[in-house]
Write a protein that binds this DNA or RNA. Structure first.
Length: 818
DNA sequence: AGCACGCCGACT
DNA sequence: GTCGGCGTGCTC
């Protein structure tokens, strides 16, 4: 009879141990160990016990080889399904990363060593227990809640797993997962009315001059209670007001634990809309094919109601008992988006995003794993939501580059979603106003089914876009950052009490600082990047490494005082707006103003209530915002993205213009968009002006074909980086020739003519690391072979002495080749 | 990554 | 003669 053996990925972050190790499963453990479980195994000469995850169990017939045995199971149920294991293995292959990196994504958030199994006793009659069982139940009952490892330690019995498992089968004991967090319980003051009297009875104790106090009481009466923070925010009451009420004994203050509840409890239901004929057709057609494992693209102009279609399809999924994953870009994972899903589906939704703590993320993960929710909404990584009955994945704003991960594994959420759908037989819906060139090409190839929504809800018109040639402004003596037209429009908008959004994709005040005498440009000492001036702190900052320095008054090189600030950022826009429109209330939204938790919400809140006249922002405000009173959008400089030396820069520009324009005219009034540019004749700008996606695509696809760029080829980038410039250059040359040698030896010469470099990367130094790049262009058929060689040259040898001190950054189809 | 082994110089 | 430096190599 053959023994069972398990392949285990060891939790040990070293490239040398990053491979499956085989362990025997003793007979007594046979029932307790399954694929996808964490186990403890003896490792190395000292047989120290470390953790690992079982990825495969198979019959072991070879009696000659002496294997070690798995020491213990750490889980009762697999924490990974077979599909998730397969997905991880696929990612390792596809994205040239380590096993551990790949598994890390599908595992519960946080450090998996910190996840512990908790045992609880069910409230059932405890008859016919063996002595051992009684001992365990007694122990758990006495402790209330206890960790599996503690129970095992207490029992000190070699069949501990079996005994506990039996108790589980008898439904006496059940287990849950818990993560140890360093985050302390958070206490906050919670305010509620102290009596149940009617509102008038309470109010009679307040003098009619206590306007704020009355307001607070009204608020509390309506809400039943609120955290002091929210109360003060919503009613604008001061702390004194609340204290006065407390002193009168009308309200009571309690310290309440703020629960790790990601979803605000006061989200009001999101009304169900009747679908327009256009939406309905899309909805019905997708629904007909929803079980056929297909891909769909909803190409709808901004404001055409894609979200409502998603929501109603999800309703159908729930009816069919299936789970849905909704992916949105991180920046549009705003309260607005979440409110729509939670408002419609309530506690059936789990939310995952980067602002959550590990503890919070873990709770959401568990809700999904345990089947407590049917919908998961989140950024890129939510594609790994551990549903067991996945029916649908929706990727909203499909074109967004944030769907490509910048960390290992450098996966594309689209590719992973497609793979998951194939494994689980689910469908994939992509939605966007500006499809990526790759996606639209797949539509034309018949791989993705297309739906077009041409009309905005209620037949609102798309805002009219005006292209302003800034060269002409200059010729006419206007050297301010506003064209005359934009200035006039802002002025008018203010007069009419409408809101304005000004967009500029650069934060800071000035983008570079230079000496007019000697021409010296101040660069970061650690990066090959000009420093950006930030006016509030009077500092120069490096946007790559974060280094800061006091803004110099004299040139660090020649000592002259002709220091000049060039290039505009959002801070300068803010300053200029305040200068020209002193009466307007202005707000700026960029990474510098939204670092604090909740600042997003506060800025949106003021915007929504109409307290902000002009909102200035970066990328952050280009997505998903829906403020009906915004009628004017000004794009300060459309050229920022256009001039980047990247093959995607035209596509980016078209997308950005279209998306930002979509923020205007969402309410009852028509919107206007002013685009300022030095390249008014560029086709991305011209096509964006007419909202002509097909026109843009036709032009762009020709260029891609002509110059051999995706989707006609794959791009593989290797960046060699390290602190020693010479070594980086030598290693990249070495790698390059090594790869060529291998290609000549084994494969096709054709691949070789598509290798570029090694060259210094566009930004040659970041955070004190020199960076050299090798680029490959390669067809789908050759990609596998190329990856194989790169794995051997760069990954398997990466601990080689000659590569000490340098690292490799390997990216397949990177979102940009900069 | 950890951990043991081993080969060398410096010390009671 | 032994202690500890770190360079090297292995982990089912």
């Amino acid at each position: 009879m053959g023994n069972l053996a398990a392949q285990v990925i060891i939790y040990n972050n070293s490239s040398k141990t990053d491979k499956p190790f085989t362990y025997l499963i003793e007979d007594r453990m046979k029932d307790n160990i399954q694929e996808g479980m964490r186990v403890a195994v003896p490792f190395g000469v000292g047989n120290r016990i470390i953790q690992g995850i079982v990825v495969r169990i198979f019959e072991w017939k070879d009696k000659t080889k002496n294997l070690k045995c798995i020491a213990d199971a750490l889980d009762f149920e697999p924490i990974l399904s077979k599909n998730m294991i397969e997905l991880s293995l696929w990612m390792r292959e596809n994205y040239l990363c380590s096993y551990l990196d790949a598994f890390h994504l599908v595992m519960p958030p946080g450090d998996f060593k910190e996840i512990r199994t908790v045992l609880n006793v069910n409230n059932v009659s405890l008859k016919n227990l063996t002595k051992e069982e009684e001992k365990i139940v007694g122990y758990i009952n006495q402790k209330g809640k206890c960790y599996l490892d503690d129970v095992k330690k207490f029992m000190d019995h070699e069949n501990a797993n079996k005994i506990i498992n039996n108790l589980k089968k008898k439904n006496i004991v059940y287990n849950t997962l818990e993560i140890e967090t360093k985050i302390n319980k958070k206490l906050e003051k919670y305010i509620s009315l102290s009596s149940n009297q009617s509102k008038d009875d309470i109010l009679k104790d307040i003098s009619s001059r206590g306007k704020k106090q009355i307001e607070v009481v009204n608020y509390l009466y309506k809400k039943k209670g609120a955290f002091i923070k929210n109360l003060m925010e919503d009613t604008k009451a001061s702390y004194q007001t609340i204290k006065a009420l407390a002193d009168k004994g009308l309200i009571k203050v309690t310290e309440t634990e703020v629960f790790r509840n990601v979803i605000k409890s006061d989200i009001s239901p999101y009304k169900r809309f009747k679908l327009t004929p256009e939406q309905l057709k899309c909805f019905n057609t997708i629904l007909d094919d929803i079980n056929k494992n297909g891909s769909f693209l909803i190409h709808g102009v901004t404001g055409s109601g894609k979200t409502e279609i998603y929501l109603q399809i999800i309703e159908e999924m729930i009816k069919a008992g299936k789970d849905t994953i909704v992916l949105v870009p991180e920046i549009s994972l705003t309260p607005q988006t979440i409110e729509r899903f939670v408002g419609r589906f309530g506690s059936n939704v789990a939310v995952l995003h980067s602002k959550l703590s590990y503890g919070e993320r873990f709770d959401e993960w568990r809700k999904i794993k345990e089947g407590k929710v049917k919908i998961a909404i989140g950024a890129r990584s939510a594609v790994f939501a551990p549903f067991n009955n996945l029916g649908l994945i929706i990727i909203d704003e499909e074109h967004e580059t944030s769907y490509k991960s910048g960390m290992n594994p450098k996966y594309s959420a689209y590719e992973v979603a497609r793979k998951r759908c194939d494994m689980e037989g689910s469908s994939l819906i992509l939605g966007t106003a500006t499809p990526s060139v790759e996606t639209y090409n797949s539509v034309l190839n018949g791989e993705i089914k297309l739906f077009v929504l041409k009309k905005r809800i209620n037949n609102k018109k798309m805002p009219v876009m005006d292209i302003i040639d800034m060269r002409e402004e200059l010729n006419n003596g206007n050297n301010s950052i506003f064209s005359r037209k934009l200035y006039k429009e802002i002025e008018e908008n203010l007069k009419e009490g409408k809101q304005t959004i000004l967009f500029l994709n650069r934060r800071g005040y000035s983008t570079f600082v230079s000496c007019r005498k000697c021409g010296y440009v101040i660069k970061c000492k650690s990066c090959d990047i000009t420093m950006t001036y930030h006016i509030q702190e009077n500092k120069l900052k490096c946007h790559y490494c974060g280094k800061e320095m006091i803004a110099p008054k004299i040139c660090p090189k020649c000592g002259s005082n002709y220091i000049k600030y060039f290039g505009i950022g959002t801070q300068k826009v803010e300053e200029q707006v305040k200068k020209y429109f002193p009466k307007a209330s202005v707000e700026r939204m960029d990474t510098d103003t939204v670092t604090k938790k909740g600042s997003h919400e506060r800025i949106f809140g003021r915007m929504k209530r109409g307290e902000t006249d002009i909102l200035i922002g970066t990328q952050m405000i280009s997505k998903g915002l829906d403020f009906p009173n915004v009628t004017l959008v000004g794009i300060i400089a459309a050229d920022t993205s256009l001039n980047l030396p990247d093959y995607r820069s035209s596509e980016r520009t078209f997308q950005l213009l279209t998306q930002v324009a979509g923020r205007a005219g969402r309410g009852d009034f028509e919107g206007r968009v002013i685009v300022q540019t030095y390249n008014p004749e560029h086709f991305s700008i011209q096509m964006a002006k007419d909202y002509n996606y097909e026109g843009f695509f036709d032009r762009e696809i020709l260029l891609r074909k002509e110059f051999e760029f995706p989707p006609f080829t794959n791009i593989l980038s290797i960046i060699v980086y390290g602190k020693e410039k010479e070594q980086v250059i030598n290693v990249s040359k070495d790698i390059h020739s090594e790869i060529i040698k291998n290609l000549e030896l084994i494969y096709d010469y054709n691949l070789i003519r598509n290798i570029y470099g090694p060259n210094p990367a566009l930004i040659e130094k970041i955070k004190d690391n020199y960076r050299w790049q090798i680029l490959f262009k390669c067809s789908d058929e050759d990609l596998f072979q190329l990856k194989d060689i790169i794995r051997r040259v760069c990954i398997n040898n990466r601990d080689d002495k000659k590569y000490r001190g340098v690292k490799f950054n390997i990216d397949i189809n990177p979102s940009s080749i900069l």
